[in-house]
């Protein structure tokens, strides 16, 4: 379960969240909202990449800011810029090495490699393994970002506009991920996305913020 407790966050003079509290337990969640409403910031806070000015974010009762929590969380977002100077292969190897020794099932160094290979093949990124990340097209960059989020089989998958720039084949793979991924998946997107037979909880960010005047919400 992902829990936001009394989160306050702002950029310069613009307040994004004020005392935002909620908990999400649903396996598939779609967060929608207008441009600049804070969808990406919400995901970055959930991934522990941004430290809120006040409050705490927990996943499975563990503070997401802790390094150990990163093993449970995977994020794909355009804001998370990947090292442009490395080749796709180098970056995936680097990532696998960083997550090696994870205590989750299927995330040992060896199995991590096979998991990577699978997703690379699934998304059709194999011909670009020797291409520098900075030279990838928009669609291929998005595929790499998704693969890197999936690579260590996290329990919580956070996807920001995951279908942006993807071709038809990759959209099918994304639908497959949303349908059959064993962990919790939270998506921020403008587009309606399908999770197959799994119910997708639709959570408009504006209503989430409006309902939050200090009282906790459980979705």
């Amino acid at each position: 379960m992902l829990v936001f407790e009394h989160i306050c966050h702002h950029y310069d003079n613009a307040v994004i969240f004020r005392n935002l509290s909620f908990a999400i337990d649903a396996p598939r969640v779609l967060i929608t909202g207008a441009n600049g409403s804070g969808k990406t910031t919400l995901l970055l806070l959930a991934a522990g990449l941004l430290k809120p000015l006040a409050g705490h974010v927990h996943f499975q009762q563990q503070d997401v800011l802790l390094p150990q929590a990163k093993r449970r969380i995977g994020i794909s977002a355009n804001k998370v810029e990947l090292p442009v100077f490395m080749t796709v292969q180098e970056l995936l190897q680097f990532q696998a090495l960083q997550f090696a020794g994870a205590d989750q099932a299927g995330t040992s160094a060896a199995s991590g490699k096979s998991v990577t290979t699978d997703w690379v093949a699934e998304f059709g990124l194999t011909p670009f393994m020797r291409t520098k990340v900075g030279d990838l097209s928009l669609g291929n960059s998005k595929k790499l970002s998704l693969i890197m989020a999936l690579q260590h089989q996290p329990q919580l998958l956070l996807l920001d506009e995951p279908s942006n720039g993807l071709d038809d084949h990759s959209r099918t793979v994304l639908t497959h991920v949303l349908t059959s991924y064993p962990g919790q998946v939270i998506v921020a997107s403008h587009e309606p996305l399908s999770a197959g037979e799994l119910p997708m909880l639709h959570l408009p960010l504006s209503s989430l913020i409006a309902q939050n005047t200090g009282a906790n919400e459980t979705a």
Binding site: A47, P67, R71, V80, Q98
Partner: peptide, 13 residues
């Protein structure tokens, strides 16, 4: 600093 968000995704303090 440039890649702080990416580096923050790694399980390393």
């Amino acid at each position: 600093a440039h890649y702080q968000l990416y580096l923050a995704t790694l399980p390393q303090n």
